[in-house]
Amino acid sequence: MDRRTFLIRAVQLAGGVAGLHVASACRRDPPTPDAGPIVAPPAKPYALQFFTPAEVPTLEAALERMFPSDGAAGPPGAQAAHLLEYLDRQMMEPHFESLHRMMRTGVLYLDKLAMREQKQPFAALPAAAQDDILARFQVGAVRGMTFPQQRFFDTLHSFGLEGTWGDPKYGGNPDKIVWRWAGIDPHCGGHIYAGCGG
């Protein structure tokens, strides 16, 4: 696509409102959101390196509630953003060894609590019940637990935000799917970046 076609397409997608401005700012080539449709790319096979198959259902369920895929007009959720892959890769980074024990134990405790209170594994609970458990972890309201439940919640959520909104090269946000939903592309900075609208 040549520069002119790209700009026209971008203007159309912006609903025409932005047309004048995009045209008048050509000298600067402001970043323009990628015009592609927002669909999840086919999942590339990824072999977990840190988490075990037994941990996956609980972890996936928790990430799915933190980053729902069914949110009405929301950004792509945990599954589309490949958050499990992102988190698993981050656990292999040297400076995050210190988090290993907490992450494993946290997953275990989500399940234990679900079993104790609902007689079902966390992953099998209805969404509202999963939300309730996570919300109690968030504020440290699970009684009789010496485990740092708030820190676990914050760490999991924080990694989830990184995977969702971070650079695709780390394994999350595949094909910039979340950035495209938001109409942003941090790589598109000014005209020195070939491939960003030119």
Binding site: M66, P68, G71, A72, A73, G74, P75, D131, L134, H157
Partner: peptide
């Protein structure tokens, strides 16, 4: 977090 944060982001 969850749907409430997604709404704020939208």
């Amino acid at each position: 977090w969850g749907a409430a944060l997604q709404k704020a982001l939208h």
